[in-house]
Simulated assay, not measured.
Amino acid sequence: MKIFEVSSTDFLEDKRLINNALADMASQFGLPNDFVFGEPTSRFGWTFFRLWIKPSLQEAINQKFDDMIRRYKGKPEEKFTFFIADYFQAKGCKTKVKLIDA
């Protein structure tokens, strides 16, 4: 299971956008919402929270967007992280995403 740390300056809005983006994606694959949000903590005007993406959703994302993910540089985990970060930004999020456990 992938665990990401997401940093946001507008937690409620960014969490809503991420939830909607991942829920829409999961429904396209016929999967339940295979992701979970952790409890937020705030420091220095930023809110940090963990996001778990279950292997079934990750695999479906990798298969559907393989051509896009392959274009990123780095190891497979880094490529997936860059893709997810860009995907969230394309959905209107102003977040930073960091992989903390593959």
Results as ranks from 00 to 15, higher is better:
15 K>V: 15
27 S>A: 12
24 D>I: 10
20 N>C: 12
35 F>G: 01
27 S>G: 10
46 W>E: 14
19 N>H: 07
14 D>P: 12
49 F>S: 01
43 R>Q: 09
23 A>V: 14
65 F>N: 07
61 I>H: 01
23 A>S: 11
41 T>D: 11
67 D>F: 09
57 L>Y: 08
42 S>Y: 03
14 D>Y: 10
45 G>D: 07
51 L>K: 00
58 Q>M: 07
37 F>V: 12
18 I>A: 01
55 P>C: 09
67 D>V: 15
25 M>V: 15
64 K>E: 12
33 N>R: 01
19 N>T: 13
64 K>S: 10
21 A>V: 15
28 Q>I: 15
14 D>Q: 13
37 F>Y: 00
32 P>D: 04
68 M>D: 06
33 N>F: 00
44 F>C: 08
49 F>R: 00
60 A>I: 09
51 L>A: 01
55 P>R: 03
53 I>M: 01
44 F>K: 05
58 Q>R: 02
45 G>L: 09
41 T>Y: 08
19 N>P: 04
21 A>K: 09
21 A>Y: 11
56 S>R: 05
42 S>N: 12
38 G>W: 05
18 I>N: 00
43 R>D: 13
33 N>Q: 02
50 R>H: 09
47 T>R: 01
52 W>Q: 03
42 S>W: 04
34 D>A: 03
38 G>T: 15
29 F>L: 04
53 I>F: 00
57 L>T: 08
46 W>T: 14
32 P>F: 02
37 F>L: 06
54 K>F: 11
59 E>P: 03
59 E>H: 03
62 N>W: 01
27 S>N: 08
54 K>C: 09
29 F>C: 05
21 A>Q: 10
44 F>Y: 04
13 E>C: 13
60 A>D: 05
20 N>K: 06
66 D>N: 13
54 K>M: 10
44 F>R: 03
31 L>P: 10
14 D>W: 11
16 R>N: 10
26 A>Y: 02
13 E>K: 10
36 V>S: 06
59 E>D: 09
53 I>P: 00
22 L>A: 09
24 D>Y: 13
52 W>F: 02
58 Q>C: 05
52 W>T: 08
52 W>D: 04
55 P>S: 07
23 A>K: 11
36 V>A: 07
56 S>V: 13
46 W>P: 07
17 L>Q: 07
38 G>Y: 04
35 F>D: 00
31 L>I: 14
41 T>C: 11
50 R>Y: 04
25 M>D: 04
45 G>S: 02
62 N>F: 02
31 L>N: 05
63 Q>N: 14
15 K>Y: 15
28 Q>V: 15
66 D>K: 04
